[in-house]
Simulated assay, not measured.
Amino acid sequence: MSKHAAGNGTPSFEPPVEQPKPRRKRVVLADARAPVTVLRTVVELEEQTSYGEQLVRGLIREQLQTALRVAIPISVIFLAIPALLYFLPRLNDVTFAGVHLPWLLLGVMPFPLMFGAAYWFNHKAESHERAFVDMVEH
Rank of each mutant, 00 (worst) to 15 (best):
A6Y: 06
A6G: 10
A6R: 10
A6N: 09
N8G: 08
G9L: 01
G9H: 01
G9T: 00
P11L: 14
P11C: 11
S12R: 13
S12Y: 08
E14V: 04
E14F: 11
P16I: 07
E18M: 03
P20K: 07
R26M: 06
V27Y: 15
V27T: 10
A30H: 09
R33Q: 07
A34R: 06
P35L: 15
V36F: 15
V36W: 15
T37E: 14
V38R: 11
V38Q: 14
R40C: 11
E44V: 00
E46A: 14
E46T: 01
E46Y: 04
Y51S: 05
G58K: 08
E62C: 05
Q63G: 04
Q63Y: 06
Q63A: 11
L64R: 06
Q65T: 01
Q65L: 15
A67T: 09
A71Y: 12
I72W: 15
I77R: 00
A80L: 06
I81L: 12
I81M: 09
I81W: 04
P82K: 07
A83M: 06
L84T: 08
F87N: 10
L88N: 12
P89V: 00
R90D: 06
L91G: 10
L91W: 08
N92T: 01
D93C: 04
L101Q: 02
W103G: 04
W103D: 14
W103T: 01
L104I: 04
L105D: 02
V108S: 05
P110C: 05
F111Y: 13
P112G: 04
L113D: 00
A118E: 08
Y119I: 02
W120T: 01
F121P: 00
F121S: 09
A125R: 10
